[in-house]
Simulated assay, not measured.
Amino acid sequence: MSLADWKEDQKLINRISAAIRSGNVSHAYIIEGDTQTDKERFARDFLKALCCRERPGSGCDVCASCRKIDHDNSEDLYIVRADGISVKDKDIALLQENLKTKPTGERNMALIANADTMTVRAQNRLLKTLEEPPGNAVILLLSENKENLRETIRSRCISYRLGGFRTDDSGFEGANEMVNALLENEKFFYLKKLLSGYVKNREDAFKLLDGMEKIYRNFVIGDDERGRLVRSEDVFSYIELIEEARRDIIANVNYNYAIKDMIIKIGGIYG
């Protein structure tokens, strides 16, 4: 798979490809997308497009560089993932040391998954690297909600929001039913029954939150006629409550409790 396969994000892909071909590449990017968007797949396709000499700006998927990035054996690519529920200071410290080494190719690259779970100390440490990037290294921060990153980090990165290739859209049906039930002021016992039918585990909870947030964002931009039934300021409150529930679950709050608490609060605003 290459950048060209991200059809639903075509305008974004065109901008990225043009920047790579012109050599106008930044040292740091935030790649934002919901739980169901394959952000790591996009990041790899981005880096292939950056490094590929056969098809610069797109990636060929067959040269040694592309294959190494796809199979996690590129000598110049360093991947950081959450240790438990967060990316910790020691993880970023190790990354900093790795980025100081001489690359075998044109540049060192870093992919930080779950970047929005970085601890405060980890973010402070990363900020130093963003302020003084080593050589022409490129750092990609993958995030479900970039607002969880410090403003000083966000301001030093180019941000892209993905809405295309998804690993699973199964949460949307439940989210749509839940939004409709809230709009119709259904009783809480009905909302709990609806919840138990769609949310069986932590992953299902994230899918429901992603689906509800997408629906409410469509309310705001006018892509869903149901948005006329509620005030825009209330919709922004719903989105913040969804983000609050997501943060609670990431912090290991029981997913059932977090979702039910969110529903009660949204229902109170509706009422």
Rank of each mutant, 00 (worst) to 15 (best):
G197S: 00
E243R: 15
L195H: 05
S86N: 15
L209W: 00
M1I: 04
N136G: 15
I264N: 05
I250N: 07
C66N: 05
S17M: 15
C60P: 03
I139H: 11
L208H: 13
I264H: 13
G171M: 02
M118I: 00
C51T: 04
L126Q: 12
C51L: 05
S232Y: 11
E32R: 10
L141V: 08
L149Q: 06
N145I: 01
E147I: 11
L142S: 13
K146Y: 11
D5S: 13
R107S: 04
R125V: 13
I13P: 15
D72G: 14
R44K: 08
S17I: 02
K193Y: 10
G211T: 02
G164Y: 11
C157A: 14
A137D: 09
A115L: 01
D89A: 10
F188N: 04
R202N: 01
C52T: 01
E32P: 10
L229F: 10
F172Y: 10
S65D: 02
Q123W: 09
K11S: 14
N201W: 04
K207G: 01
G105W: 00
M178R: 06
G164M: 04
L182V: 02
L183M: 15
C51H: 04
I242D: 00
N252E: 06
K100R: 08
R55S: 14
N254S: 11
T167N: 12
S196P: 00
M109C: 01
G84K: 05
A175D: 08
G84S: 12
T152W: 07
G57E: 07
H27S: 14
E173C: 03
I215N: 11
E225L: 05
N14A: 12
P56E: 08
I13D: 14
I242C: 04
S196I: 00
L127E: 06
G268V: 04
A205F: 02
A64T: 07
R53W: 05
E244V: 05
L142K: 09
E213K: 03
A49F: 02
T101W: 01
Q96E: 09
R15V: 09
W6N: 08
E203I: 04
N218S: 07
Y160S: 14
A28Q: 15
T152D: 14
V235G: 10
G197Q: 00
K260R: 07
G222A: 00
A49G: 03
Y257V: 06
Y270P: 01
A137P: 13
I85T: 14
I259A: 06
N145L: 09
M178W: 04
P134Y: 07
E54L: 05
Y270N: 15
L141A: 11
P133V: 01
T119L: 11
C51Q: 06
C52N: 00
A4Y: 12
R15K: 14
R41W: 03
E54D: 08
N73V: 15
V253K: 11
N108E: 01
Y216C: 09
D70A: 14
Y198R: 09
S237V: 03
L111R: 04
V62R: 12
E131Q: 15
T35H: 15
L94W: 01
A205C: 03
E240I: 10
